[in-house]
Design a protein around this nucleic acid. Structure first.
Length: 127
DNA sequence: CTTCTGACA
DNA sequence: TGTCAGGA
């Protein structure tokens, strides 16, 4: 399984995505309605976002921060625009994200482990 | 406790 | 966009 495939894997719930993107759950769901992202769903109908979705959301936020409205953002996506300056500078690199995940996996012995670790282990699992 | 949908004093 | 309801 290559990196590209892993980036498509449905891994995190909306709460994690909020922390990763700085967007509110309301915004994330709203953007989904507008087709900006298409997270997978768990059996319990819970949204499961992939790294691809998270990156797209960060890209969307960079445009919104720069004053674009929904129409503007859609135009960028339609044009296949790639995040420019700000987006590139503020967007966490893959390494940042992986490092962040490893921290989650190492876990905080006191805070109790997250079921999250189990899901994330899928990302690292070979084959 | 977290997430989901629908709705708006 | 925030926030509340009512349910899973």
């Amino acid at each position: 399984m290559d990196l590209h495939a892993r980036k498509q894997m449905p891994l995190f719930p909306i709460g994690i995505v909020q922390k990763l993107t700085g967007l509110s759950a309301r915004q994330i769901r709203y953007y989904e309605q507008h087709g900006l992202v298409k997270p997978a769903r768990s059996e319990g109908n819970q949204r499961l976002f992939s790294f691809h979705d998270v990156e797209r959301l960060l890209e969307v936020r960079s445009w919104l921060d720069r004053g674009l409205n929904m129409a503007g953002v859609k135009a960028q996506l339609a044009r296949g625009a790639n995040g420019t300056s700000d987006a590139k500078r503020n967007e966490p690199t893959d390494r940042d994200l992986y490092k962040w995940m490893q921290q989650q996996m190492l876990g905080r012995p006191d805070a109790g482990s997250h079921e999250f670790q189990g899901e994330l282990s899928r990302f690292y699992r070979r084959k």
